[in-house]
Computed example of a mutant assay.
Amino acid sequence: MNHISCYKLLITVVRKGRAKTIVKASKEAGAEGGTTFIGKGIGIYEKKFWGIPVNQDKEIVFTLFPEKIIDPLFNAVTEAGRLEETGQGIALVIDVTNLAGIAHFCDLDAKKRHNMQQASGFELIVTVVNKGNSEAVVSASKRAGAEGGTILYGRGTGIHEKETLFSIPIEPEKEVVLTLIAADKTEAVLQAIRQDTGLDEPGRGIAFVLPVDKTTGIKRLEAEAKSGGAVFSS
């Protein structure tokens, strides 16, 4: 029996100005709050990205929450953000294997945990690169078949102050690209990112893959993934 975290991470991508609505709905559903990032979406089509105009900035909300409220929280955020409507945004849930500052853990055997992680059929590629290199990450992803990506910008108030993403220091000159992808296509997209951005060279950046438990706002792409034809991004 493995001791793992009782918490999960909800990532919600919405239009600029909508993050407060998501955070409010999350709190009402039992979460303690959320962290909001400013970013933008870049899609394979010039005018729209998942039905959302690309010339609009995005807000990305990270919400750490107890697993026991996953259904009411997911439903509350979906309703508050109108995420089932085309072009309103997306949300996905990621398993948290360990954490600090919250001393609550669950007993869950490895097989059950693996089944939970594979339930959605999607994975999230997180790429951290130097400022100005995020476009190369998105371009590589699209070359490998993804539809684009969501770019986050690290923000700090001083040269020695840092923010963190998944416990990784993010300085103001860093950019983070989130790419949601069908699990069977992850390797091809990851390799394209490595080749185009030189991630294997020291100081160029990092990329890692996380399993996704649940998604909303991507009905068409979920259907395509089930039929074996989709590779896409967040």
Rank of each mutant, 00 (worst) to 15 (best):
K131L: 07
A100K: 10
E163N: 09
T157R: 05
I170K: 00
R143E: 12
E123G: 10
K131M: 08
F105P: 02
P169I: 00
A188G: 11
V126D: 03
K185L: 00
S120H: 02
K185S: 14
I170G: 09
D200H: 15
Q117L: 02
R204K: 15
L199G: 11
T164Y: 14
K112P: 04
N133V: 04
Q191Y: 07
P172A: 01
T179S: 14
H160M: 13
P169C: 06
P169D: 01
K142R: 15
H160K: 15
T186N: 09
A140V: 10
S120D: 05
G148K: 12
E161F: 13
E173T: 14
K142H: 10
L190A: 13
S120A: 07
K112D: 13
I168Y: 09
G203Y: 06
L152R: 06
T179I: 14
K112Y: 04
V189A: 15
V177A: 15
G149N: 01
G101R: 03
E135G: 13
K112A: 13
E163Q: 12
I170R: 05
T179F: 02
H160G: 07
V137W: 05
A119D: 08
Y153F: 15
A136P: 01
I125S: 07
N133Q: 13
F122R: 09
A183H: 14
K111T: 01
A144E: 11
K142I: 15
R143Q: 12
I151K: 01
E171L: 06
D109R: 02
R204Q: 14
K111W: 09
Q118D: 11
L124R: 08
E147N: 13
G205F: 01
A140G: 02
V138G: 08
G203T: 04
T197F: 03
R113L: 13
G198Q: 05
P172Y: 10
A136Q: 13
A207F: 07
K162L: 02
D107K: 12
G101S: 09
E175T: 07
A183R: 15
V189N: 10
V126P: 08
I102D: 02
Q118R: 12
R194F: 12
D200Y: 09
G156A: 13
G121H: 02
K174P: 09
N130Q: 12
K111H: 07
I159A: 06
D107L: 04
L152H: 03
M116F: 01
P172F: 06
S167Q: 10
T179K: 12
K185N: 14
E135N: 14
